[in-house]
């Protein structure tokens, strides 16, 4: 085989890899849209479910999912910002830096079902909070914490030192430098990380299924300590009734709505990142 042939073979094989990768995604989307679209209607999106979820709409599931991730984001953001600022601006010791990195990556590597069990033992039983959506938000916020922390850290840490020096040289204290110079320029990193994090969190089933959700008979919660119904747990419940064609179609419809929500968060994250890149380049 001469060099030209090798070159072509290499090109063909990487082309093949890209094609397979794109096809898998297109295939998945295709199936979800093909099966889910017939289920989607205004009634489906605005009505509550009946007959243990097999009939009716998914409005409370959509509401429950958004409520969970909204509070997860609110709980996560201050902790992630604080950790990122400390790691970037205050932590000088190399060894402590490595330890903190290891901790953050380990937290990211913990399987989601473990978070669920931890939530059940610690919050639901030990703290006696019962099955409640706020416990679900707390657990999801812990799950997305590494993503948001690292994204914020990278955004803050990549701000050139000359910005820190120029503002300190004007007589600003360290916290003023952080609040007035670093945070405004690094905040996009926190928002990007948050959107990527909640795009992942909204689809999670395992960590919330025994601590925050009920499978049927749930409406709007009137306090922090009530269960909600969410899209992924609803899909799980419907998939278990696969012999009922209406339930199955509703499962496809709910899947499509969930995928659309994930795509919205991911694309917003992409846009914020692109917009900031163009600002920092100009």
């Amino acid at each position: 085989m001469n060099r030209n042939m090798k070159n072509r073979l290499f090109y063909i094989s990487i082309g093949l890899a890209v094609t397979i990768c794109s096809l898998i995604l297109l295939f998945l989307f295709g199936i979800i849209i093909w099966n889910g679209l017939p289920a989607i209607s205004l009634d489906f999106l605005t009505n509550s479910s009946t007959n243990f979820g097999a009939d009716g709409g998914i409005v409370y599931q959509i509401f429950g999912s958004i409520l969970l991730i909204l509070f997860a984001a609110l709980i996560c953001l201050p902790i992630a910002l604080g950790t990122a600022i400390y790691k970037s601006e205050y932590l000088k010791n190399e060894i402590l830096h490595k330890i903190l990195n290891t901790l953050i990556y380990s937290l990211n590597g913990i399987p989601s079902i473990i978070f669920g069990i931890f939530g059940l033992i610690f919050f639901v039983n030990l703290l006696n909070m019962g099955i409640s959506w706020i416990v679900g938000s707390i657990i999801l916020s812990i799950m997305i914490l590494p993503t948001v922390t690292l994204s914020t850290y990278q955004a803050i840490n990549s701000i050139p030192t000359v910005y820190r020096e120029s503002s300190s040289a004007l007589g600003l204290n360290k916290w003023q430098v952080i609040v007035q110079v670093l945070l405004p320029q690094g905040f996009h990193g926190a928002v990007t990380g948050l959107l990527i994090g909640i795009a992942r969190a909204i689809g999670e089933t395992a960590p919330i299924m025994f601590i925050a959700t009920a499978f049927s008979g749930v409406e709007l919660p009137s306090s922090f300590l009530e269960p909600v119904s969410t899209l992924p747990t609803h899909i799980l419940a419907l998939a278990q009734q696969a012999t009922n064609p209406v339930a199955l179609q509703n499962a496809w419809g709910a899947s499509l709505v969930l995928v659309m929500l994930v795509i919205i968060f991911s694309i917003s994250a992409l846009f914020i990142r692109l917009r900031h890149q163009s600002i920092s380049k100009s």
């Binding site: 050139p160 000359v162 910005y163 020096e165 120029s166 503002s167 300190s168 040289a169 004007l170 007589g171 600003l172 204290n173 110079v181 405004p184 320029q185 600002i279």
Partner: peptide, 20 residues
């Protein structure tokens, strides 16, 4: 007080650095 000192001794750096 470093912040106080730096208001008395100002500094301009090699690369112009304006804030956004």
């Amino acid at each position: 007080d470093l912040a106080q000192l730096r208001t008395q001794i100002g500094m301009v750096f090699q690369k112009p650095c304006v804030f956004p």
